[in-house]
Amino acid sequence: MALIHTLHILNKTPGHARSLQCMDALRPGDALLFTESAVLALATQQHPEIDVPVFVLAPDALARGLGQCPDGVTQVDFPAMVDLTAQAQTVISW
């Protein structure tokens, strides 16, 4: 599997200042992982402007009634999340 340049792990709600900062920081070759309250982004129609792979931590999505994932978003469990971080050259936890 291709390496991820920077994995952005976001746990803030969509309107949160740090969430906006995270979206600004995305670069080609990066990946975005939504955890905790950030999974609520799945319910809004807003997507990152840059085309990067988007992942969501499944237990957090399920908890918030968002188990049905939109197209283009990949659900990961805890072991898969660990794999993602291992593939990334750098990780930013927002």
Binding site: G15, S37, A43, A63, R64, G65
Partner: peptide, 22 residues
């Protein structure tokens, strides 16, 4: 604001070890 997400149906927080706010 984001508080409305309390009201979404079919929340399943078992795997994050919490009780359903709904």
């Amino acid at each position: 604001d984001t508080g409305v997400n309390w009201l979404r149906a079919f929340q399943q927080p078992n795997d994050i070890a919490q009780k359903s706010v709904a």
